[in-house]
């Protein structure tokens, strides 16, 4: 049994917004081992991006703790935190803005090497070439500026930069959503190769269930700052146990015109994270809601060893009835 790389313990993140409060993340716990790809899916405002930023210490939780290889990140500050960042890196959605437009690719790749004091000044050029090679780019790309690169190439550079400190954890926030469909496969394959080749764990934040299905080993479905269902990818996709998961999966368009959707789509909009409803957050859109659902927030409970669902009716309602 290997120890988890990442453990998040009851993460809460609230933002003040004028007189009110945005409840972005409302108590999320998860753990991740090497070689695992955890997909975090959900709609806008479900808190998945905020959670991602907290996992790599780009944001601090209001409550709760993130442990990286057993070490509590919130205990670190200043230079110690900066040095520890080598171990966990983020890949951003828009490669067009995640690279400094005035820096060459080489400069962007040298930045982590310098900050984490990896290699000597002399062999850093060599290391930059190695990084470029790892993401399938020729060495001469080191001299180019981001605006001379296509979206797919920029995203490779961003991945190379994240790899510079030999991290154990990568958090990718919608890494292919901004890319053209025909170049997505290049980046997805690159990420799959990285997982297959090393002792790396990946948190893959996405709204694209097709990509998630291809790359992830586990899925966490988020709704209004909470995980409503988590489990092995195949199980969650083929036999969802939470009514929201079901609604989400039914809403995903299927690229097959002969199998058009027959179920009526989920009604309503994702609710606002400013005014949290009492009880289950999904109650207003849930076709199976009963009075008890409004009484209290349902706990995330294990329904099988690897599987947890936050629905008080998960025992009475089977997947087929959802």
């Amino acid at each position: 049994m290997t120890a988890p790389i990442l453990e998040a313990d009851n993460i809460v993140r609230h933002f003040p917004a004028g007189a009110s409060t945005v409840h972005a993340v409302n108590g999320v716990s998860l753990s991740l081992k090497a070689g695992e790809v955890l997909a975090v899916v959900g709609e806008s405002g479900c808190g998945k991006s905020t959670l991602g930023r907290i996992l790599v210490a780009l944001d601090r939780p209001t409550k709760g703790a993130v442990r990286m290889n057993g070490a509590d990140l919130s205990a670190l500050t200043g230079a110690a935190l900066r040095k520890s960042r080598a171990g966990f890196q983020m890949i951003f959605q828009d490669p067009g803005t995640s690279l400094n437009p005035r820096w060459t690719v080489g400069q962007s790749l040298r930045e982590p090497l310098e900050n984490f004091t990896i290699g000597t000044r002399r062999d850093r050029a060599e290391r930059v070439r190695d990084l470029l090679k790892r993401v399938g780019l020729r060495p001469e790309f080191a001299e180019r500026y981001p605006h001379e690169l296509s979206g797919g190439q920029k995203q490779r550079v961003a991945i190379a930069r994240a790899l510079a400190g030999s991290p154990r954890l990568l958090v990718a926030d919608e890494p292919v959503s901004a890319l053209d469909v025909s170049v997505r496969a290049q980046v997805i394959n690159l990420l799959s190769d990285l997982i297959a080749s090393g002792d790396l764990a990946l948190v893959f934040i996405s709204h694209d269930i097709g990509v998630v299905a291809h790359i992830s080993t586990r899925i966490a479905v988020m709704y209004l700052g909470r995980i409503v269902e988590i489990g092995p990818t195949a199980d969650v996709l083929h036999a969802p146990r939470h009514p929201y998961t079901r609604g989400l999966l039914d809403a995903v368009p299927v690229p097959d015109p002969e199998q058009r959707r027959t179920r009526t789509p989920l009604t309503g909009d994702p609710p606002s994270p400013i005014d949290l409803p009492a009880g289950c957050a999904f109650v207003a859109r849930c076709p199976h809601a009963i009075d008890a659902c409004r009484a209290s927030v349902p706990e995330l409970r294990a329904v099988s060893p690897a599987r947890s669902v936050a629905c008080i009716r998960s025992e009475e309602i089977s997947t087929d009835e959802l």
């Binding site: 230079a79 960042r85 803005t97 690279l99």
Partner: peptide, 14 residues
């Protein structure tokens, strides 16, 4: 607010 600033923080820049 541009992601390249977050990226710079992430790769340990002061």
């Amino acid at each position: 607010e541009m992601p390249f600033v977050a990226a710079a923080i992430s790769v340990g820049s002061s």
